[in-house]
Amino acid sequence: MFDDRSPIYQQIADKIKKDILYGDLSAGDQVMSTNQYASFYRINPATAAKAFQQLTDEGYLYKRRGIGMFVSDDAQAQLRQQRREHFFADVVAPMVAEAKAIGITLDEIIHHLTNKDGTPGESRD
């Protein structure tokens, strides 16, 4: 589930963000409690708490005293906005760099992407 190479709380936060982004967690949904999370994934409760703290600080989750933690209404929109800003830098730029290195032209990429209503093809012909 988690690798040992980066802070686990970061990995937990990333996973929950991904769930929100992909709609597996919707606005108003309750997320697992720190303790449930800790026992489910066999991690230290403080580590889980740190992830939830980060997510509430960033506004993706909110706490209801005595009840638990819930997904904020604008969490998904906020995440989409943020990911969009980084999409070209984080996803497209490395791809372009790789394409350049192996001699694929931009035209080829565009052709590939627009071909078959945007579904990536298995092979180039």
Binding site: N35, A38, S39, R42, I43, N44, P45
Partner: peptide
């Protein structure tokens, strides 16, 4: 061992 880890976390919590 995994049962032990589970019990340890549950106990600590």
């Amino acid at each position: 061992r995994y049962a032990f880890y589970d019990e340890l976390i549950a106990n600590y919590t």
